[in-house]
Amino acid sequence: MKTFLQILSYGLMSGALYGLIALGLSLVFGVMSYLNVAHGALIILGAYLSFWLYQLWGIDPFPSILLVFPLFFALGLLLFKGLFAALMKFSEGDKIKNSLLISFGILLILPNTIILSWTPDERAVTTFYSGAVVDLLGWRLPYTGLATVALAVAVIAALHVFLTRTYFGKSIRAVSQDFEAAGYMGINVPRTYMVSFALGVALASIPGAIVALQGFNPDLAFELTNKALIVVILAGVGSINGLLGAGLLLGLVEAMGVFFLGAAYREAVGLLLFVLFLVYRPQGLVGRKT
């Protein structure tokens, strides 16, 4: 029973991280239908930045987010202006298809550039609290895991407030629901796309910091994108609030997979859930039907 509870709690903490991982991808996909499969590579890049900030100046990963977030926002603006803006000349269908292809190209280029620059070695940030746990009669809850859950709730809540209480946030939702009509309202649609994309990239810095604490290497990029995709589909495209629940669901399902089938099938169980949702419940847990 204790082991079951233990595995369950690890699953939930992983789930919170999955929710964070999916945030940036979901935002961009929901607003402009660009499936940025390079998102995982951006998270890894964020992990490296947090890592170097710690190595060079002793900045703990959690506060490092305050530095990496704006940096990534700028990177997102650059990427959009430099690369994705060139997609505007295509028709809607081609635009969406080609955005997938381009991000695929970035997914290839970025991790390999990282390997060339910083070697493929495994890295990790080890801090004073790295191994520490809250011990409740044998039930162990790592501090990092608890912080991840808290961070996930905080970030998603903040994003929710941004999207529902600020004018710009509301305009982002308007653009995602009907971009042509949004234009007729006086909303600068191209600029909204650019800012949303940059925000999506910036959001990768948050899970990046946590991944830095867990240990990472460039090959993780693909797996992270994969997790993000699964959570986005489980939540339903366009739903930000549902991401936390979907992340937790994935974490739980994986934990159950480990418990009943063994560690080797952890990924496969999540993937199966993913395919089932894709084919039989495409609107996800809470999302709208497109």
């Binding site: 994969n226 990924e267 395919v275 894709l278 084919v279 495409p282």
Partner: peptide, 26 residues
């Protein structure tokens, strides 16, 4: 998976390929 369109089809087939890989590995 054929009823999926556009990028849903892409990620669906990707998931299938990954499931196949993991199954064979194990």
């Amino acid at each position: 998976t054929l009823k999926l369109r556009s990028h849903y089809f892409a990620i669906g087939t990707l998931a299938m390929a990954m499931i196949a890989l993991i199954t064979v590995q194990n």
